[in-house]
């Protein structure tokens, strides 16, 4: 079952996404959301915290930590193919727009891109595991002001 917090997160994400409608069922719970076409102005995150030089930990409190989230439900892969070098690993420096993983759903492949410049501090799911829509798959410490 979804908690109220999950639901709120989901709705916020849907609101920001390009999807105009969404349906999901889990057990006897089901939800159907439809968006009107009016443009919603996205609140701009006001992150001004200065980067600190603390050890790379997964503290949520660190305002420079950003989560990369799954744009689709599916199986996540951190390498373009079996036997190839992974797109990212802990410590990798990545730029905004870089491919960090692939999600496969029904033989459709989606590249997952980094929303920020930064350093990968943690992979939150295992290669080859199933992820839900919007599930965080990696944590990145942002650098610069993007």
């Amino acid at each position: 079952m979804l908690t109220e917090i999950d639901l709120e997160k989901l709705l916020t994400k849907l609101d920001k996404s390009s999807f105009t409608s969404f349906e999901m069922t889990e057990g006897d719970f089901s939800i159907k959301v439809k968006k009107e076409t009016t443009q919603v102005v996205q609140p701009v995150a006001t992150v001004n915290a200065v980067a600190t030089d603390v050890e790379a930990t997964s503290e949520i409190a660190d305002a420079n930590l950003e989560e990369i989230k799954a744009p689709f439900v599916g199986v996540v892969y951190f390498a373009p193919s079996e036997g190839e070098d992974p797109y990212i690993k802990v410590g990798s420096h990545i730029s905004k727009g870089d491919t960090v993983g692939l999600i496969e759903a029904m033989k459709m492949f989606n590249e997952v891109h980094s929303p920020v410049d930064g350093e990968v501090v943690e992979l939150l799911v295992e290669n080859g595991s199933m992820v839900e829509y919007d599930q965080p798959i990696a944590r990145v410490r942002k650098v610069g002001d993007n």
């Binding site: 744009p71 689709f72 905004k96 727009g97 033989k107 459709m108 492949f109 989606n110 590249e111 891109h113 929303p115």
Partner: peptide, 8 residues
């Protein structure tokens, strides 16, 4: 093979 190209 189907690939979705996402705008960043």
């Amino acid at each position: 093979i189907t690939e979705a190209i996402t705008e960043v």
